[in-house]
Amino acid sequence: MNIVEIKDVCKTYPAFKLKDVSFSLESGKITGFIGRNGAGKTTTIKSMLNLIHTDSGEVCYFGLPLSEHETEIKQRIGYSTGTVSWYPRKTIRQIVDITKTFYKNWDEEAYRRYMTLFGIDENKKPIELSEGMKVKFNLLLALSHKAEVLILDEPTSGLDPFSRDELLELFKTLRSHGVTILFSTHITSDLEKCADNIVYISNGEIRANCTKEAFLKDHGKPGETLEEVFLRLEREVLS
């Protein structure tokens, strides 16, 4: 069952165009969203969060259009990125105390559990956190309101191999609990370990939207890894 549907999303910038982007996320699966820097991954994710004004197209979660059910949908989804830090000079406790008042499903027990698991100190400020800890803090916020869909923009960028592995294991555990994950990355080796499906975007266009196995079968050569397939496809686009 598809829990998220992105249909014909277009967005034109002076130097870049997102062209009829369509794909879906299967419930309880991890979908790897791959593409090189500037391919349109973040723009697509922003359109999925209503952070940008698209020219056309529609994004639906749980069968509901985002344009009409924004508040309701945002109660049920979570977003995490390693590239932005919110309120860098406030303590995590201050940020969480306010954030939780917006969520009907905030689970204090889950919050405490993940905080211990991630090793996050509530008295620290985001400015004092490493890139990896920032990702974990964002994930902590998403997981504590029991998000059914997690949209993760480059969540493993800047993480050491051990933390990356730890996060990938966590994603697999969340998947086993029915959480749907969109995992945008250019570190394709991470997806080898955990992705069920692959959405491949290049130059603002979706080039593939299928299971990881089908992607490797359709686009790869025998014995090629996901990373090797991705690199070869990108080189083909350039040549």
Partner: peptide
Amino acid sequence: VFSALLPI
């Protein structure tokens, strides 16, 4: 951006 991501 943080506010726009909240369920509002």
